[in-house]
Amino acid sequence: MAMEEQLNLLKEEALAKIAAAANSKELNDVRVAYLGKKGPITDLLKGMGKLPAEERPKMGALVNVVRQEVTEVLEARAQLLEEKAIQEQLEKESIDVTLPGRPLKVGSKHPLTKVVEEIEDLFISMGYEIAEGPEVEKDYYNFEALNLPKGHPARDMQDTFYISEEILLRTQTSPVQARTMEKKQGAAVKIICPGKVFRRDNDDATHSHQFNQIEGLVISENITMSDLKGTLDLFAKKMFGQEREIRLRPSFFPFTEPSVEMDISCFKCGGDGCSLCKKTGWIEILGAGMVHPNVLEMAGYDPKKVSGFAFGMGQERIAMLKHGVDDIRHFYTNDVRFLSQFHRTEQ
């Protein structure tokens, strides 16, 4: 048989086998069989030595064309088979994307901590420091230094847990103010004091023998009631929304004079009156006032030269209002179904 004829036969044979290859392994066998070093095409090339010299180039070119053609068809088939294989794999790997994901463990801050940090950060941005002090206090710092001498009728306002005649569980965070003032020795003060306090109350939906307050104190030259109002206005808007309005009502605290209570316009009804604001349109938020001269004097300040304001509120009350919590005991029961509701952001 002429070499050319032989070559064409080989080609037809190879192409048929390529087309028949069902996967890349079979295809590879075809590659090895026809194009490999021991394959028939290579054999043909080796046998070209027997041809007359003038036929050799023509025959060589022909072999290369066939080789080229077979290779191309084979590559095309290989790609096709690979795509098919990938397709099959993808189909096999398909999942139900609606099944739940693997839950990551998340915890969160206690809602009171959330409130405190929000308040702390607001005042830190205005140059306040955070001051802390002991929870077991001297009668002196809890009462006397705050213009509440022994026997003062206002001491009835707070029923106190005493440890001894002179030592007690603090009933307010104000002793931190007294201690800070004493330590600052006449220098300006700008502090926020968060902390735990104790009163002789039976625990119920609105009372807790342990609860938390957060107070602020500013002492410097020329501090005015207007400065207090401006500061509280900013606080109210930041905590309860830009649309909030505040109003001050006269009140009484032994350590401030004048003393006021601050209401904010109801954030539920916008001031029209609802159950939250008891139909008044206003919600009581905190107590405040200008620091009483006796308090300044006792801490070593000259009330003729400096003045100051102070304000204080219950953390629980703020958290209850902000989040609609209806029972103060929730904050101390540590029910995971309660705590787990406070991990998300609100903005």
Partner: peptide
């Protein structure tokens, strides 16, 4: 008290912050 202005304390500015 409604007639009282709203101002902010002026005076030396303090850095503030957490310890």
């Amino acid at each position: 008290y409604d007639e009282i202005l709203t101002t902010m304390p002026i005076g030396e500015s303090t850095p503030g912050g957490l310890t």
